[in-house]
Design a protein around this nucleic acid. Structure first.
Lengths: 344, 344
DNA sequence: CTGAAAGCGCTAACAG
DNA sequence: CTGTTAGCGCTTTCAG
């Protein structure tokens, strides 16, 4: 029962001052080999480990990063949480997680709670941003980065995939596939990802002289997406799209289910479908969903880099807006264009 | 830029002592209405909020719970993380997450890191437990509960689903379905869940006068499961199982993929498959996986209850072993027995 | 009910 | 290199 061993106890046992002990456990401090040796042994014997919280109090850095996530039900996020957490751990940080879901009250309360922990930084992943959340961080002097969300007026640094370019790729693939009636199932319209993906898709269509044939809203939500799919496709062949771009994979699976198992249509023979994210199930053979990949590894790396940079530098670096290239992943849910080459 | 407003500043502004301020923000303290009023106003104006870390230092309770998770790639866990986090947040706790994956070194290091944060409690979800992890928590005086893992000699409280009963249900369904050659694809053999599910399955088979026809190991891992499925099923009809119980849904999807898309077999006509967990994709129409549901809500509720109880009580309550009943969820991946009634 | 005072465990000058 | 001395921001006796 070695509960609560303090540096004082170690000091006594080692026959040195308490500050000597502190120095031994502080990376850039100067201690003689001999002292360090004695202290380490004593610490070992007593099972001493520095108290992170006490350290945080005086040093002003808690080594904890607040991570705000809205919903783990989109399987892109579990992956991100895992990678973020790992990456941060390697750098000596740990992640305090906050679910910004329905139950937990509004996001602003959550922000306050986070700030109460004196976090060294905040990552906002997939969160509906009350306009001044960034401001709040700023005034609290806490570095923040937006993950998978951009914000108008880029006052906060953010990292996203290149959603616009991604949407355009989707459009080009569908056009090249010879489709004529293009549908789009939108995500939640408050999300920048949704807006950018749609804008890119429309761009791509326009560039090829096409335009949107049908549009429904799925809100990044399974039930809503199911209804959207029914509204869009439960009609005579000529009145329904022969290709549809769905704002994320999560909804795309539902759309495919409706198409194939409710409506008895064939994918991609009757309709091509393409998603966004490339979550693991997209590769499962029962779906084989063509999609635009968000490269979680790169996005995480950039996020961590940006955040640690902000933490380590005195004056805040100017906000930047990183956009990771997102490749098209060709599977079986879309008709393959004639002479199609990867990344065409 | 209201960075770092302290109770002292609030005290000055309110014209009271610093301890008065502290009392106002301490739940069970006695302050006059008038003082409280003045303090609150001053705090409001200054944007003051108590520093959780400082509070933790003196009170000895950090209100943070360490959550150790191994892999979020099994979609049962994201759900659990979300629910745990929500539930704990409601009780004024927050979750510090630790990924116990490959990269992060072994679990013991992780444990030490957690303990460094003076967490009030620890939840170990899906972790290969080095034998003395419980001991480590005990000697550090930190309450711990095992989630979805039991440990021999139950010195730690744990909450799991009733894996054994679940395995038995799987067996009974398959037997009732008239299957004759039963296969089992095992998870990682170090896991109690794996062992219990298999034991239950074997029990159930035995009770009906059946025995196992084939067994392979999938290690709760996609690639391994794929190989296992190939070994088990890529053979003449009479040499392969006509039904298979897979130790979790995650692997079961892969098994179904191999069966249907690699081997051209029909599920459930050629072979019935049943999984364990009931993760969301099990309900997706392209799989329609019959499975044993782990009731995340209940499991989480029990976990939180047990943990908070341990935290709040002086002397540690005796370890208990909660087992949540896990119902069979009938979908389309198994042949339906004659006269089958739900929960039969 | 309230203020003064004593720390929680540790880091960071500051003299030696 | 090392010990001494201040605190970090807050809770908690202890007298009033």
């Amino acid at each position: 029962m070695a509960e609560k061993v303090t540096s004082v106890q170690v000091a006594e046992r080692a026959g040195v001052s308490q500050s000597a002990v502190s120095r031994v456990f502080t990376p850039g401090a100067s201690v003689s080999k001999k002292t360090a040796e004695k202290v380490r042994r004593a610490a070992q014997e007593l099972g001493y480990r520095p108290n992170v919280l006490a350290r945080a109090m005086v040093s002003g850095r808690s080594r904890i990063i607040g991570l705000v996530v809205a919903y783990l039900e989109n399987y892109f996020y579990p992956e991100v949480v895992e990678k973020l957490s790992n990456s941060l751990q390697e750098r000596g940080y740990h992640v305090l997680i906050f679910m910004a879901s329905q139950t937990a009250g509004n996001i602003d309360d959550v922000m306050e709670e986070i700030l109460d922990y004196q976090v060294d930084g905040i990552i906002l992943a997939s969160v509906a941003l009350s306009s001044d959340i960034a401001t709040r961080c700023q005034q609290a002097g806490v570095p923040a980065v937006l993950f998978n969300r951009a914000q108008a007026g880029d006052s906060v640094t953010s990292v996203t995939s290149d959603n616009r370019a991604g949407g355009r790729k989707a459009a080009r693939l569908l056009v090249a596939g010879g489709h004529r009636r293009m549908g789009y199932i939108a995500g939640w319209e408050g999300a920048s990802t949704q807006r950018d993906r749609e804008a890119g898709f429309l761009d791509g269509l326009a560039e090829a002289g096409h335009s949107l044939f049908a549009r429904e809203i799925g809100d990044f939500n399974t039930d809503r997406a199911r209804d959207a799919a029914r509204r869009m496709f439960d009609r005579p062949p000529s009145k329904r799209p022969d290709a549809v771009f769905v704002a994320n994979d999560h909804m795309a699976f539902t759309v495919m289910d409706v198409l194939r198992f409710e409506l008895g249509l064939s994918v991609p023979d009757d309709v091509s479908v393409i998603g966004y994210d490339d979550v693991p199930p997209a590769a499962w053979l029962a779906y084989g969903l063509t999609t635009i990949r968000q490269r979680a590894n790169l996005m995480v790396a950039e996020t961590v880099a940006a955040l640690t940079e902000m933490i380590d530098s005195q004056d805040p670096p100017k906000p930047r807006n990183v956009q990771i290239d997102s490749p098209l992943i060709m599977r079986k849910s879309t008709r393959i264009p004639e002479g199609w080459a990867p990344e065409g």
